[in-house]
Design a binder for these strands. Sequence first.
DNA 1: CGGACTGTTGAAATATATCAATATTTGTGG
DNA 2: CCACAAATATTGATATATTTCAACAGTCCG
Lengths: 243, 243
Amino acid sequence: MPTKYPLHLFKALGVLSLDDESKLSQLGEKPVAVSSGEVIYSEGEEVDGIYLLMDGWVSSSVLLRNGLRLIQKLHLPGDMMGVPSLVLPRSADTLTALTEATVAYVPRATISALFESRPRITAMLFMSAQLERLALMDTLASTGHSTAMKSMAHLFLSLHLRLTTLGMVQNDSFRLPVTQEMLGDLLGITTVHTNRTLREMARQGLIAFEGRTLQLLDLPALEALSLLPLRKPEFNPEWMPKG
Amino acid sequence: MPTKYPLHLFKALGVLSLDDESKLSQLGEKPVAVSSGEVIYSEGEEVDGIYLLMDGWVSSSVLLRNGLRLIQKLHLPGDMMGVPSLVLPRSADTLTALTEATVAYVPRATISALFESRPRITAMLFMSAQLERLALMDTLASTGHSTAMKSMAHLFLSLHLRLTTLGMVQNDSFRLPVTQEMLGDLLGITTVHTNRTLREMARQGLIAFEGRTLQLLDLPALEALSLLPLRKPEFNPEWMPKG
DNA sequence: CGGACTGTTGAAATATATCAATATTTGTGG
DNA sequence: CCACAAATATTGATATATTTCAACAGTCCG
């Protein structure tokens, strides 16, 4: 069981001192293994902290009144999970492990202490929240104002980018531990339509999938389909507090 | 021209000391009046700071490759605008004044200094970023996984709530300085369909509109339509750094 | 081995987009 | 203050994307 919290997302935001690194590495409590399908917490529960994802895939979903489910984000190693719920008395989303996963709990008090003692890390947390906002804005643009195939293209490309950073892509091919129903919940479309869209993309030679492995066959075509270019955070580290 | 930056959003997050209040009030540079229709900055520009909205309405929009426009948020007095673009070399969105408005610019350096000197305010900024994430998640759920009328209901209710806080609602009626085209860009639907949906809602006695004034005639029915209950941030101020 | 998910396909219904034309409102220059 | 141009709202007819319902095949797992 991998027990180290990957820091690449923070490193993208600025230069981490050794001290920062060790502080961030020690943030979580003892890492816990969760098995595939297991719920880490449910929407509406009182959760008094956040979770760091060390390894595996975890979905963040919300149940809607019409019985549908929105999958708001697929979490990958290095992600902080459940952060928005810090401003709520009860959690806004449900975290479900999609694979075997390893997570570490960080109680509120730890974050609070971090805020008091580490302005530099706090600033990084603030910036990473802005990155999440941008990702949500892009998802909103890509799903709400677009056709199923275009938003699927965008989803696949953004996963490709995130997984590449993690070294989880070989030959534009990666494991996508998600059912077609879940894919639909990510894009706001039906299972049936998800299926048809996937087959159509395969027919056009854009992708190939066998089991839960997806291969992107034509990156330029997928990028041309997608309504939005992928964002690369570019951030001037000078801008960070020195502390 | 109102020159004070409304602090209600921060007050909802915790107890502001007098010192905090004065610090936040002095954050922006000299307030500037912008006229209706004026662009504060455009997507792709280099913007080295954020804007505080003191008075008026401002939209934050993004242009898509298919020529469509996503209006990501309607900003109201008290909002900080352009914050996500802090992590990008060029702004992600376009800010356009929808009415006469008053804004104050806050250069990056000021925010940076704030981060170093004021852990408590920094923590509040972090929390308010989480609130924005929740709002985006709700919009995503409401637009992507729903029908036009349901997401319209949610939009109207959330505006009703925000405007009530600002004292801009009388008798469930408020000014909505937005064309039907813009409404469509907010929900991801066509102008034509926006129009038909509005008329249908009026026919059903849910709303009434004349000119750009909207009245919500049946709040319970609108709430029943909406896929999501409105969120009320409830946050324990004890949780904030004392500093 | 069997049952429960998951994926696939067809046909019909529905929501929304598109195209096109006309009414209405708004803002502006004279 | 009027008159006009431009922007906005409205409506109809048709096309398209997506949902819904239903049935069945494939796969996985205990």
